[in-house]
């Protein structure tokens, strides 16, 4: 049986969409911003979680965060081509120096997070970020 708290929770998470900046995101995820000076004023409304860059390249949405466990240069390149300006690297993966440099060159925010992709997505969804579909 679904409790009233559960029902309220479900209602709340679908009803209260919001936008967030990089500092709010990092705080929620207990994560580290390792590049992001250029994106301090950016607000994000949507998030997309994938390790498959082929799928990321099919997205046509602005104001998007990419949540990925893929810590390589192609994750940054894919974000660059897709006009994605914030990437959260999950599962404790470390961004390489090349990744950080390319992110800075493209004025992107790069965040390292120790949580799983599922937990990261759940926290951000519950906080009001929207799914694409």
């Amino acid at each position: 049986m679904l409790s009233s708290i559960g029902q309220q929770y479900c209602f709340k998470k679908y009803d209260e969409h919001t936008s967030m900046n990089q500092k709010e995101i990092a705080k929620l995820l207990n994560a580290r911003i390792i590049a992001g000076e250029a994106g301090e004023d950016m607000d994000y409304e949507f998030a997309f979680a994938s390790d498959l860059m082929s799928d990321v390249l099919t997205i046509d949405t602005d104001s998007l965060i990419l949540i990925t466990g893929l810590a390589n240069l192609q994750a940054i390149r894919t974000a660059e081509m897709s006009d994605i300006s914030c990437i959260i690297v999950v599962r404790g993966k470390k961004a390489t120096e090349d990744m950080v440099q390319l992110a800075i060159e493209n004025k992107m925010t790069l965040i390292e997070c120790d949580f799983t992709m599922f937990k990261t997505s759940g926290i951000l969804f519950n906080a009001g970020l929207k799914a694409l579909y």
Partner: peptide, 15 residues
């Protein structure tokens, strides 16, 4: 492993 090879490349180019 690089995040590609899902068979989306050419269809996405066409799109």
């Amino acid at each position: 492993e690089m995040g590609f090879g899902a068979g989306m490349g050419l269809p996405n180019i066409k799109r």
